[in-house]
Amino acid sequence: MKQPETKPSDMQHLSVAIQRYRPEQDDTPVWQSYQVPYDDSTSVLDALHWIKEHQDSSLTYRWSCRMAICGSCGVMVDGTPKLGCKTFLRDYPQGLKVAALANFPIEKDLVVDMSRFLQHLTTIKPYLIGEPSLVQAGSASAGSDQPSSAALQPQLQSPEQVKRYQQFANCINCGLCYSACPQFGLNPEFLGPAAIALAHRYNLDSRDQGKAERQPALNSKDGVWSCTFVGFCSTVCPKGVDPAAAINQGKIVSTMDGVIQWFSPKQLDATPQEPTS
């Protein structure tokens, strides 16, 4: 982790209040304040490290990459969901309050139980569905002495086709959007922003044929229609995924589905079929 060159004693200090919850001794979370040395580059995560190493080794939080890509370090900073490693003390000259991500059960201090989130991700079948065409004419051919030329070849996909879904593929599963979403807070069964964005990502992929399999979950009452477009999820997303857009584009898809089903003569067997392979 970052070791400031100057000694902590010469540095400015800032008051960082942290919501603590130690399951083996607390019944409800309590606030605790620390004075933390900082400079221009000190992130909230660095501040947590400093506290853990110098003041209170039992302080508990998740982290790994410290470069805003692994999605571990989500916390509430002054009531707004943020990545600890991408939020800097310099932006809070009056001090700041750090708490566990809202809307999730708290395991300990800043660590929340993410299992519901993972479950929602799994529900929407986030993988390519359907048989890819094995050999595409004109696809990139491997070098001259490539062993088995009859083997799998890449499918074609134009940069425009990639662009259609790319934004929604940039989700780092940090869960900030779930903390920003009052609908998820009220109803944890709501699939939620990131899961729906991921479903949308695969639905928009030109290589995918799985929309029919994903749609039932998306159309259900805990799917897109739980969203009232508060839009805060997209504001807090650190990766510009814009999950609110995905959900509300999903509502249009869902409506079209409904209309098509309404007019479809075989209304009764409109349930999606397993793709034949």
């Binding site: 919850y21 399951p23 083996e24 409800t28 979370p29 809202a102 809307n103 059960p105 708290i106 395991e107 139980d113 009052p182 807070g185 009220l186």
Partner: peptide
């Protein structure tokens, strides 16, 4: 049980 998740309410 050491685990005792705290469920915050809205």
């Amino acid at each position: 049980m050491s685990r005792k998740p705290y469920q915050p309410s809205m």
